[in-house]
C-alpha cells in the first residue's frame, strides 16, 4: 500500500494540479504539504485553491452545442 494512503484524505496539491500533475498531499497535524513543490495549506485552504483551477474553464457550467 502506498505510504500516503495512511495519512491523507485524497487531496491533491493545487499548485501541481494547475500544472496538470497529480501529487497527493501528505499531512502533518492540520497541515497538508506537497512532496514535489512548496505548497502547504489546511484542507479548507486547499479546497479554496482548487477554485482558480476550475475558474479557467469558462464552459464548466455550459451545455455546448456541437455541429
Amino acid at each position: 500500500m502506498p505510504i500516503y494512503a495512511q495519512n491523507v484524505l485524497g487531496l491533491r496539491c493545487p499548485v501541481c494540479l494547475a500544472r496538470e500533475i497529480d501529487v497527493v498531499l501528505y499531512v502533518d497535524g492540520e497541515e497538508y504539504y506537497c512532496i514535489k513543490c512548496g505548497y502547504t495549506g489546511t484542507e479548507a485552504e486547499t479546497r479554496e485553491a482548487y477554485k482558480p483551477i476550475r475558474g479557467k474553464f469558462k464552459l464548466l457550467r455550459t451545455r455546448v452545442k456541437s455541429g
Binding site: 476550475r54 455550459t62 455546448v64 456541437s66 455541429g67
Partner: peptide
C-alpha cells in the same frame, strides 16, 4: 473529475464530449 472539469455534482462536459463525437457523423 481528475482534471477538475466538473463543479459540485454537475458536469456538462461529459455530455458535451458525447455531442462533439456525435457531430462528426456529418
Amino acid at each position: 473529475m481528475r482534471g477538475m472539469g466538473y463543479e459540485g455534482e454537475e458536469c456538462p462536459y461529459n455530455l458535451n464530449l458525447v455531442d462533439q463525437y456525435l457531430a462528426q457523423e456529418k
